[in-house]
Amino acid sequence: IINNLKLIREKKKISQSELAALLEVSRQTINGIEKNKYNPSLQLALKIAYYLNTPLEDIFQW
């Protein structure tokens, strides 16, 4: 999986903590996703895309 979450999140000036709060997950979860240590569920990936107002395929590429 190619993961552009960190790049997109930083472009939008959103911290890991802010995104985690919006998604109701821990900051460690966001960190793990960004470091490719954790693959989000489809539901979480869709929520990330929604809150970042970015197409899912721009954030994650399988």
Rank of each mutant, 00 (worst) to 15 (best):
A49R: 02
K47V: 03
E10G: 06
G32T: 10
K13Y: 10
I1Q: 10
Y50F: 14
E18R: 12
L22A: 15
K12H: 07
L19V: 01
S15T: 14
L19C: 03
E34T: 04
I8F: 08
N31E: 15
A45D: 03
R9P: 01
I14H: 03
L22M: 13
L23P: 00
S41P: 12
Q16R: 09
G32I: 08
K12R: 09
S26Q: 07
L19F: 06
I2Q: 11
L23K: 01
E24S: 12
L44E: 04
K12G: 03
Y50W: 14
N53G: 11
I30Q: 01
N4F: 06
Q16L: 11
L44D: 04
Y38G: 06
D58Y: 08
N39E: 12
S15I: 03
K47E: 06
I8M: 07
L5F: 03
K11E: 12
E57P: 07
K47F: 03
P40Y: 05
K47P: 01
L19N: 00
K35T: 15
L7A: 14
P55H: 06
L42K: 10
E24M: 11
P40T: 06
K11Q: 14
L46D: 05
E24A: 14
G32D: 15
K37V: 13
I2K: 13
D58T: 10
K47T: 04
N39V: 14
L22P: 01
L52P: 01
R27E: 15
L46S: 09
N39L: 14
N39M: 15
I2N: 10
K11A: 14
E34A: 01
L5M: 12
V25T: 07
K47A: 09
L52F: 05
E57C: 10
I2S: 13
V25M: 05
I33N: 00
N36S: 12
E34I: 02
N39P: 12
Q16M: 09
I2C: 13
R27Q: 15
E57W: 06
I30S: 00
P40I: 08
L56Y: 08
P55G: 05
Y50V: 07
I8V: 09
Q61P: 15
N31L: 11
L44I: 06
N3K: 02
I2H: 13
L42W: 10
G32Q: 14
E57R: 12
S41N: 09
I2P: 11
I59F: 05
L23H: 00
S17L: 13
A45F: 03
I8R: 02
D58C: 10
D58R: 08
A20M: 04
T54F: 04
S17Y: 12
I48F: 05
K13T: 06
K12E: 07
S41C: 06
K47M: 07
R27L: 15
K6R: 13
L46F: 08
K35W: 05
Q43P: 13
L22K: 12
N39G: 12
L52H: 00
K11D: 07
W62E: 08
